[in-house]
Design a protein around this nucleic acid. Sequence first.
RNA 1: GGAGAGAUGGCAGAGCGGUUGAAUGCGGCGGUCUUGAAAACCGUUGACCUGAAAGGGUUCGGGGGUUCGAAUCCCUCUCUCUCCGCCA
Length: 426
Amino acid sequence: MLTLKQIQENTEAVIAGLKIKNFDAEPYIKQILAKDEDRRNTQKEQDDLLSQINVISKQVGQLFKEGKTDEANEMKKKSAELGEKQKALGTKLDAIATELNDILVRLPNLPYKLVKPGKGAEDNEIVKLVDDTIPNLPADAKPHWELAKDYNLIDFELGVKITGAGFPVYKGMGAKLQRALISFFLDENTKAGFLEIEPPLMVNEASGYGTGQLPDKEGQMYHVGIDNLYLIPTAEVPVTNLYRDVIVSSKDLPIKNTAYSACFRREAGSYGKDVRGLNRLHQFDKVEIVCIEHPSRSYETLDKMVAHVESLVKKLGLPYRILRLCGGDMSFTSAMTYDFEVYSAAQKRWLEVSSVSNFETFQSNRLKLRFRDEETKKTQLAHTLNGSSLALPRIVAALLENNQTPEGIKVPECLQQFMGCSMLTK
RNA sequence: GGAGAGAUGGCAGAGCGGUUGAAUGCGGCGGUCUUGAAAACCGUUGACCUGAAAGGGUUCGGGGGUUCGAAUCCCUCUCUCUCCGCCA
């Protein structure tokens, strides 16, 4: 969430910024400023009372020691009265703080200066296009769900039987391809200086709030009611929460983590033509990168992360494009996002395979993730960034479709050492 | 799942109703000494809210209670450890 300081010091800029995200913040901002003023005044009042009570209490102790019982009892009475008032103020303060917080968490993150306004996906800006590897497939080229069946790589029906739609079963070389991609991505990431993490696949409520999935995306996550745990929708959640309530040393920045995890998404309300095969699933594999960076360098780091993800897509030999999302298509929490899409030649469409974002202090404010500034010696919120590197299903879809030949499906060179072959055959 | 013990600052570890925000040690930072370093010695060192500042307030796992006053007493939740059970 945005910090009160941001809102107080740059009120107009915040309102203007959120307009780019098509969010009319003005009425909320007014409420926030009013509530905050109320909060400060109430707290001052309460603090003064507490201060008086503290002074009296010390005197009571002293008077008892001196044997002045009558005087002490007199003071006790006075303090008890103040205590009543103080308690009432405390209750009021809690209520105000809750109201303030409820409004604050509903405000999306401010977009970065490079983000342009726009309504949705159609207004995203293509910053790079590499389409010279789009293959010339024959007219009878098959989509990946058919190839997966022909080559016995993925069984969607079996998944439906044992679990439900959106839970594919990978078999034989299909399963091995998953493992190959995960290994390849993790190896490349660790080579680039990311520390590998294997996180839990379930998180508690506090973690859900920390990265912002709760409360707004409650229905999107699988919930294990008996233990009140959530299946992670992305490794971003457990990995970023490693740093919840942590003050890191500024010399440790940037912190670079990578993690493979299965990801679980209920995707409530989405069905139909766009979700065939691997295009959208309830469970899928993904390798994630997470960075924690000094505010002055976070956009440099974002660029480096984008360059890194690009190197992966390049090595896989897939046609790709990089988009800078417009205000209307960006997520609630992001300040700037680059999406990677690969071209799926048989479906003749671009598929999103990665989303790399800078959240600035939006997550760290909730997480209380700070670092100590070397100069001022004060704690300051760090910037958090993350991206997929990469999500597997659509990569698999594109690889199968783009690399199909009459002889079989070609395995990209970078995966051959993991697959033990250069061609998938029937 | 059953029985018991515990949770205090970056870490270790005292305190068990009244100048205790918290002894002591380690670590960190600054200094003296040294050509430099180590050692030794001296000083300093939690976080948060509020305030221009001085100051005030909160915080000893979380929440609630008793009291004029709680790290200290009571209730509750969470977590950790030991033993038993179960088990990859």
